[in-house]
């Protein structure tokens, strides 16, 4: 509990964590509609405008690669505005090179997917550190600029990040740049109370960013921001990482499986027979069908 007298920041001081998708496979696929360089100049202008709005505003950029994630920019580090951009671009370049050189075989989902779970966790760690730094801190929020498709293998990790963001009351805004809607980010924004938006025209990305995502948390109480038409709540199974509508869940640890298993691979509970055969068995560790 922080005493009222020590809450000195005005309401619109914000800490914005921006997660940038740097997956080369994705950017290659949308080369004709939105080049990576155009995207970057839009984002840089957006970051500048966030820092312009309040001198206490803070921006942190995390690059989401397909093998690794890293912090590439923190506005609290550097002082000069002119160095800011150069520094960030240089770090980004280093990151992309490093990301490519890392072995591909042990990547979670394969090269087509970016490590959203990793960058979300890094963002949340950073926010936790800010929370603990003292009673005076800006209001944090996360903005995912994501393009590549959801990696089903990251389902558990992403959901865990989402729930911890919800617990610490950090909204996750998502701006989906790819052709497909992202079920992960839909759920993330829905659960944490953020904004989910898939821009129709990627040429005007800055305008989307400035109109929707630059809105601080305080002003959001007075404004009607875009609401998603529907949210894809489908889950991935733990055994084959498939996205499923119907499945089995473990009644002890709530793990999800697409096929009937003898034993829960997560918590080790032994299951009885499949559901239809024996309903009067005293064994409680029975699996129940998952309601889609």
């Amino acid at each position: 509990m922080t005493p009222v007298s020590s809450k000195l920041y005005t309401d619109d001081v914000s800490l914005l964590m921006v997660l940038i998708d740097t997956n080369p496979f994705f950017w290659n696929s949308v080369k004709s509609t939105l080049a990576f360089s155009t995207f970057l100049s839009n984002v840089l202008a957006f970051l500048n405008s966030i820092l312009l709005l309040n001198q206490l505003n803070q921006v942190v950029v995390i690059a989401t690669g397909y093998n690794s994630c890293d912090y590439i920019f923190d506005s609290s580090d550097s002082q000069s505005q002119t160095q800011r951009v150069e520094q960030m671009l240089q770090k980004l370049e280093e990151f992309v090179d490093k990301d490519e050189s890392l072995g591909r075989e042990d990547s979670v989902d394969g090269p087509g997917f970016s490590l959203l779970s990793g960058s979300l966790s890094m963002a949340l760690c950073y926010i936790q550190r800010v929370f603990r730094s003292g009673p005076l801190h800006p209001q944090p929020r996360i903005l995912c600029l994501h393009g590549s498709p959801d990696g089903p293998g990251q389902y558990v990790a992403v959901m865990n990040s989402i729930f911890s963001a919800q617990r610490s009351m950090v909204p996750i805004d998502s701006c989906v740049l790819g052709a497909q809607h992202s079920a992960f980010l839909q759920q993330a924004s829905y659960i944490t109370g953020g904004v989910y938006l898939k821009p129709q025209l990627l040429d005007g990305l800055f305008q989307y960013l400035a109109t929707v995502f630059a809105t601080d948390l305080h002003s959001r109480a007075f404004l009607q921001l875009p609401k998603p038409a529907g949210v894809d709540f489908r889950a991935s199974c733990f055994c084959h990482k498939n996205t499923i509508d119907m499945g089995y869940i473990c009644s002890v640890c709530l793990s999800i499986f697409c096929k009937h298993q003898k034993k829960c691979s997560t918590c080790g509970s032994v299951f009885g027979q499949a559901q239809t055969q024996d309903s009067s068995t005293p064994d409680r560790k029975r699996k129940t069908p998952l309601d889609a």
Partner: peptide, 12 residues
């Protein structure tokens, strides 16, 4: 803060 948002929105 709302006015800031409007300025940003109208900037271009």
């Amino acid at each position: 803060s709302l006015a800031k948002k409007y300025v940003l929105q109208l900037l271009y």
